[in-house]
Design a binder for these strands. Structure first.
Length: 591
RNA sequence: GGGGCUGUAGCUCAGCCGGAUAGAGCGACGGUUUCCUAAACCGUAGGUCGUGGGUUCGAGUCCCGCCAGCCCCGCCA
């Protein structure tokens, strides 16, 4: 309905100009979707702010606007007679035939009315980013799920999206890992093929334990870091083996979640780190303080009111994460072939890194690495908390492994499903049970995360996310299943445009109006980067559909109502499937 | 000390650029099954939007103070 909205916006503004062109006041129709169904489809609040400057009652102003508006034949074609309500709101209701026409246009449209962007510069979404040689844990859950959903929405809008996995594949911890590897599995370094190093987490723990206890191991580890940074072939080979092993483990999770990522770890930027510091020096931003290369931040002061530095070169000459992040920004905005030529770079990381990114972005900005119309954004999200409101931990107090968390969701779903089958005396084969349990379980985890505003902390609860009622994945998936049921029972949902759509019931019109909101919601998510807006919409759509399904017969209806209702079913399932798909959630035929 | 985020119904959360009587879901209570999957639907109860000021036609929303919780603050990421 965005095109309708824009048309109305123009008509309202023109009407206001005709009515009050002498006023010399800024005119804004303040057009918005109606706050309640009884107010129609849209409301224009623009009369109210004019009351004082014009010295007229707001309802009189609204009346004057409406008079001009109704004189516009284009408006009369779109809307019924506007209503003035309350202190001076102008309520607009679209003509039923316009609504039906809008719906008709979406029936044959795989994009469901969502336009494709013209601009073709790449958008980078930086998300997930686990550390090599460590396991993915609950801390990676939100970044991975939210980042994937945002990437999908941007891709759907037509942006070329680069999904970057900025894995932690460099740093001092590799000294001890490589030293340990060389001593424990020297044969791995001489073999041509990748070897299975087994449980990397245990491997990491062993290396860490030795590093903490054994002084000579520490010394060797430190020397190993230097060798690695110096490009020693054996050290590099060992490093590569560790990365490969980690990569295989990460990939299992990504496959399970259906998430596609391009790995480009921190090490990728190593060749560019020195240039970052050189550039900063060249533009006069670099200050050496206590031996460290710093850029002092503007508008950020520390304890004694002194400006706070961003350290880009340690006093020992080494680089740190700020250097790497700066190198990444510089590379991502730089034109090809030595850069990505991005127009927008989005970082999906936890809110705790907000000040770090603010500092890095400021320095990149001042260094001139972010070209003018382009933008860099931190997309923060809150902590994952347990039922107790504290950071989520296992019963023994350990960090929750992502794999365990996902497995438990699937197991719980399976147990639920088996119970239900028994209660209903339904019989399904094993493959069906596994498929439904996996699909619903993972969908529930994703949806629960995506459906709350990402900025606040998120309270993780299997019971809530797997509930079959309320704003949950199972509820939405069930709406899709119901429509699939109608199709199985003889409803033809595959037909093209229906000759004429006719609606008579309130539930039908409610569904029509809800379906037409889809394009606006997508535009909002693209701009605000808030997936919960899409979740809320899909939940409301499911509710409106369930009301319709409950109260209005489809298959048993007489023509022409039957075809029109089937068209509503078809558009509902298409919208839910597309919307859930953009959240990374596949739908089911039966459950 | 400085900075950031959060505070809305018993619980979990929405709330768009400041707009009409602040909304859902869960839980509670009460209904609905010859009928497309009741994993659903309908209804009732439940609020000093942390708090005190300010801005204005109008504030949950914007500004200032305060309270509470969480997070960040020089060589980890």
């Amino acid at each position: 309905m965005l095109t309708v909205l824009h048309a109305l916006q123009g008509q309202l503004l023109a009407a206001m100009q005709r009515a009050f062109q002498e006023a010399g006041q800024p005119l804004d129709p303040q057009l918005a979707p109606a706050s309640k169904p009884e107010f129609g489809d849209f409301q224009a609040n623009g009369a109210l702010p004019l009351a004082k400057p014009l010295g007229q009652p707001p309802r009189a102003i609204a009346t004057a606007i409406v008079k001009q508006l109704t004189a516009d034949p284009a408006f009369a074609e779109l809307c019924l007679e506007p209503q003035i309500a309350g202190p001076g709101f102008i309520n607009l209701t679209l003509r039923p035939e316009r609504l039906a026409a809008e719906l008709q246009a979406r029936l044959g449209d795989p994009r469901l009315g969502v336009p494709t962007v013209e601009m073709q510069a790449p958008v980078i979404v930086d998300f997930s980013s686990p550390n090599i040689a460590k396991e993915m844990h609950v801390g990676h859950l939100r970044s991975t799920i939210i980042g994937d959903a945002l990437a999908r929405v941007l891709e759907f809008r037509g942006h070329p999206v680069l999904r970057l996995n900025h894995v932690g594949d460099w740093g001092t911890q590799f000294g001890m890992l490589i030293t340990h590897l060389k001593q424990v599995a020297p044969e791995a370094l001489t073999m041509a093929d990748a070897v299975d190093l087994g449980d990397l987490v245990a491997f990491y723990r062993q290396a860490k334990a030795r590093f903490d206890d054994d002084e000579s191991f520490q010394t060797t580890s430190r020397e190993e870091v230097v060798k690695l940074q110096g490009g020693d072939p054996v050290s590099l080979k060992a490093w590569g083996l560790l990365c490969d092993q980690s990569r295989r483990e990460f990939q299992k999770i990504y496959d399970q979640l259906g998430i596609r990522l391009t790995e480009r770890g921190e090490s990728f930027y190593n060749p560019h780190l020195q240039a970052v510091v050189d550039d900063l020096r060249a533009v006069g931003l670099l200050v050496v303080d206590a031996g460290a290369g710093c850029v002092f931040l503007e508008g950020v002061s520390g304890k004694d009111g002194q400006p706070l530095p961003l350290i880009v070169q340690k006093s020992d000459g080494g680089f740190n994460y700020a250097t790497t992040d700066l190198a990444a920004i510089r590379y991502r905005f730089a034109p090809g072939p030595g850069g990505d030529g991005a127009s927008r770079v989005i970082y999906v990381t936890d809110a705790g890194q907000a000040s770090h990114f603010a500092g890095v972005f400021q320095v990149a900005q001042r260094a001139g690495w972010i070209p003018s119309p382009c933008g860099v954004e931190h997309v923060p999200f809150g902590l994952v908390q347990g039922d107790d409101g504290k950071k989520l931990k296992t019963r023994s107090g350990d960090t929750v492994r992502l794999k365990d968390l996902l497995d438990e969701a699937v197991e719980r779903t399976e147990a639920d499903l088996r119970q239900r089958l028994a209660d209903e005396q339904r019989s399904e084969d094993e493959a069906f049970i596994q498929q439904v349990a996996t699909s619903v379980g993972l969908a529930a985890v994703k949806y629960a995360d995506l459906s709350t505003n990402r900025i606040t902390n998120y309270q993780f609860s299997f019971d809530r996310m797997l509930a079959l009622t309320g704003n949950t994945a199972p509820y939405l998936l069930y709406a899709v299943v119901r429509i699939a049921g109608i199709a199985r029972k003889g409803g033809d949902l595959g037909a093209g445009a229906v000759a004429s759509l006719t609606f008579s019931e309130a539930q039908e019109w409610a569904l029509v109006r809800e379906l037409l909101k889809f394009d606006g919601v997508i535009a909002e998510v693209e701009q605000e980067l808030l997936p919960n807006r899409l979740c809320n919409y899909l939940f409301e759509l499911s509710q409106v559909f369930n009301r319709f399904y409950d109260q209005v017969p489809v298959l048993k209806a007489e023509e022409p109502a039957r075809s029109s209702r089937l068209a509503l079913c078809r558009l509902t399932t298409d919208t839910l499937s597309l919307g859930l798909g953009l959240l990374g959630i596949p739908t089911l035929e039966r459950m």
